[in-house]
Every structure is written in structure tokens, then in C-alpha cells.
Design a protein around this nucleic acid. Structure first.
Lengths: 244, 244
DNA sequence: TAGAAACCCTGCCGTTGCGTCAAGGTCAAG
DNA sequence: CTTGACCTTGACGCAACGGCAGGGTTTCTA
């Protein structure tokens, strides 16, 4: 048989068969005088075996091991491992589909998918157009996606957010947008903000060490000087009390 | 933030982030005077979004589309498509695991996995050490793996194989191993073989056209001249009666 | 008998989503 | 002043082939 014939017979492409030769899965057969590969029925049997195994999901390396004459022993081992792997993949896919369906069911949130804890928090928050509040929501979404222990933090924030007084605090921060770094409103706002934070929250903030340093700078860079002053004092307070 | 910091923050590798820049998924951020990339919190938010979407199984191209500002519309579309794809994969894996478990449950057959029809046939066949019979079993396994309509053929063969007389036919074929191509035993053996084949079987053999031509030659090459003579006559009979 | 269709050959690039060097520059601490 | 831990660009590697280029062979057909 020529390569096209055996390919059609076992249901592979000629390219795949040549590839198997190339990687040493199947030895190159004899050649006809014109250079064409001349396949035997044995080759077809072997290729059929290869096809069944690859269709099961074995890699070519695994197929090579499984076909390495001592078949029985190795094969069962590889197959069990493969089954475990497939089980993992199946569970993985199921979980993804689960999250996907949750995502498809909730189109209004343009921010993307969020955890239930954060969703509850955002729903609870008073409506406001404050840019500072918008930023805060963004950062919360970030925490939600990155920090693992954010659930309890969101729960603690719930009590804070439910208070309509926070809107006023956000607006006072907004008002500092164009102010200089030594504006007299900075200190009292920082004090009021810290007073509004429940005590347990200071302990709940995770301490990621080096990461926090860079993050803090980046965060401050998002604010105008006077606002950064306020936010910076808040963060310093968190870092100090978090340690102690 | 430097790249290592933001990477740790959102749970990606620095290499992945640079890759995202490279493929245009995320624009290159500003640089510090020393050439380091300087990331903002916005970038972290974006990267967190990318991470969530890639974890769901979207390709980077799809993520790019989904993040392309007009989010809402495109995204739902892509996600639904993705869900359908995942459903396919899930079904696929389930089927593979199914075949795998069937394979693991039956370790004795060193020939590899076979269809139930063929398994029944082989179990029914009388025990013999005839090399010709071994070859036949091998070719049947090949048919089982390649030819789709082999079920009915196996069923028809069942009546043939159940007859203990076939063993004698195989042994007569074996006996021709060293014989010349004009051995007088050839004609009667071919006649007896053809007589043993049930009439329906001639019609059941599929006609694959060109594939058969090459396959026939390869098959004959597996036998010694006298044996090939016998097998060749059988095959010719099949091809003629199959047509008519 | 020539030309076209349908084969075959080798070899190399492209795919996906990064990992992994290589060969350097930068920065804080000991 | 030297580690060591960062950062930079650039290029190759991976799995399992698909596709194309640039040729030769065989076979069917007009």
C-alpha cells in the first residue's frame, strides 16, 4: 500500500503518518524503487492501534510506551493515569461551565463577574456618582479577583457601606481634587475616615509584604496630591495597626 | 508597581504579562527612567479581568474581543459559544472515559480493545496455534478498528467460525508455507474455502475502490507464494461476487 | 501521445500560551 | 564592592500535526 491508501484504510491523514515516522512512533517502511513508502498490513494494524490510543487522549509518547512490546504492564498503568487526568479535566470543565452560566445569567454588571459577597456589598451601597466611590468599587473588584481572603473583608465592609454617611465622606474626598497637598481639609477628612472604619477591619487586611509597597505607590498615583495625602494616611494606619 | 509586583498581585507570571503586551492584549504601560514598566492599579484591574476570562477557557483573541470597550454585546455571544464548546468537550471526555473503563476492565486481550461483536467472535473461535489463523485474527482486529460496517460481517462469520472444520482449513493453508506456487493442493483448498463461506458474506464486504487494490497486494505480500495463490483466489471471488 | 489529475517526496513555517534560557542593566542591602 | 533579587530584550521550545512550496511519478483521458 502507498501512504494515501493506508491512511484512508485506518482513518488518518498522510501527514499524521509521516509525523509518526518522524517522531519514531512507527518505523519507516521499505521504499518502492520510485521512493514511495510501501506499507504492509502489519503497519495498518499498528497504525490502527495508534489511532485508538490517541483517540483516547494518550500523547504520542504514551502511545510509544504502550506499544513498546511489553504492552500489558505499562499500558494499564498509563491508562489509569489517563483516566485520572480526564476526571480532573471533566471536573474542571464542569466548574468553568458553572461559573459561565452564572456569568451569562447576569448581564447588567458591566464590571464582569464578581463573587457573591462582593455583589451583595455593591447592591447594598448607596447610589452615588462620586468618582472616588467609583474608584473604590473598582479596587474592590480587583481585590475580589486577586485576594483570597476577601470574603470576610467584604462582610465587615457591609456594616460600613450601609451607612449613608459614607457618601458624604466620598464627596469630601472628591472636593479635594484640585486642592494643594497642604489643604486644611485633609487632616479632618482622614480622621473621619479612620473613625468610620470598624476596628476588626484593621486586623483583616492581609499583609503581602513587598507586593503592598508597590501597590500603595501605584494606588496613590491615581489620586491628585491632596487626595493622595488622605488616602496615604489611611493606608499607613492600616499597615501600622495591621502589624500591631 | 513593577511587573513582578503586579504579577504577584493578580496571580500571573511576569512572562504571561509580557506576552499579553506582545500580542496586544494589554498596551505597554509607561516606563520608569530605568526602563522598568510602571503599572497602575487600572492595569491590575484589567489583568484581573483577563485572568478570569482566560481561566474560563477563552483564547487570548476572544479575551481581546471581549474587553474591546463595547464589552456587553460581544461578550455574551462569545461566552455562549464557549459554553457550547465546553459542552462538546465534556461529552467527548465522558465518552473517552467510558471506552477507557471498558478497556481497563478487560486486561487479558493483549491485542488491544475490540468491539463487542469481534470479542464475541474471537471467544467463539476454536483454539488453534495455526499461524494463518493468527494472521486472520489480526486482520479481523484491523477491520474492527477501521471498517465501520464490520458488525454484520462479524455476525455472519460467527456461523462460519463455530464450525470446527475451519481449523483443518487453516492447517491446510499452513502446510503450503514452503510449497511452490504451482502446488497441486492449491486449487482444492481454495475451492473448499469458498464453499465454507456463507453466501451472504460475499455481499456484505464493502467496496472501497482504490483502497482495496493496494490493500490486496499488501495482504498477499504477507504470504508465501503458494499461500498467496490461495488467498488471492479467495479475494478475487469476493471482489467478483461483491460486484455482481 | 501529450496533458491534466491525482498521487508521492522532502522540508520548512505556523499554530497556542506561555516556559525557559541567554546575556545583559538596575537597585537595595550587607 | 559584591551579592542577590529584580528588570530588560530576544530567541528557541513544546504537541500534534496543517499547509504550502517546489519538485517527481503514475495513470487516466482527450
Amino acid at each position: 500500500m502507498r501512504i494515501g491508501e493506508i491512511a484512508a484504510l485506518v482513518g488518518l491523514t498522510t501527514r499524521a503518518i509521516r509525523h509518526y515516522h518522524h517522531v519514531g512512533l512507527l518505523p519507516e517502511p521499505e521504499r518502492r524503487p520510485n521512493g514511495y513508502r510501501a506499507y504492509s498490513v502489519r503497519d495498518a494494524v499498528l497504525l490502527a492501534r495508534v489511532r485508538r490510543l490517541t483517540e483516547l487522549g494518550l500523547s504520542l509518547d504514551e502511545v510509544r510506551d504502550a506499544l513498546a512490546d511489553d504492552a500489558g504492564r505499562e499500558l494499564a498503568e498509563v491508562l489509569e493515569e489517563l483516566d485520572a487526568d480526564l476526571a480532573r479535566q471533566e471536573a474542571d470543565i464542569r466548574e468553568r461551565r458553572c461559573r459561565l452560566s452564572a456569568l451569562l445569567a447576569e448581564p447588567p454588571g458591566a464590571t464582569g463577574p464578581v463573587s457573591p459577597a462582593l455583589a451583595a456589598l455593591l447592591a447594598q451601597a448607596p447610589r452615588t456618582d462620586s468618582p472616588s466611590a467609583a474608584k473604590d468599587r473598582e479596587y474592590l473588584t480587583l481585590m475580589d479577583a486577586t485576594s483570597s481572603g476577601s470574603q470576610e473583608i467584604f462582610a465587615l465592609l457591609g456594616t460600613l457601606v450601609a451607612d449613608p454617611a459614607v457618601v458624604e465622606l466620598y464627596e469630601r474626598l472628591d472636593a479635594l481634587a484640585e486642592a494643594p497637598a497642604d489643604d486644611p481639609r485633609i487632616a479632618p477628612l482622614a480622621a473621619d475616615l479612620m473613625a468610620a472604619v470598624p476596628e476588626e477591619l484593621f486586623a483583616a487586611i492581609p499583609e503581602d509584604g513587598a507586593v503592598v509597597t508597590g501597590f500603595k505607590e501605584a494606588l496613590l498615583a491615581e489620586y491628585t496630591p491632596a487626595q493622595a495625602e488622605v488616602v496615604g494616611r489611611l493606608m499607613d494606619a492600616f499597615m501600622e495597626r495591621g502589624r500591631g
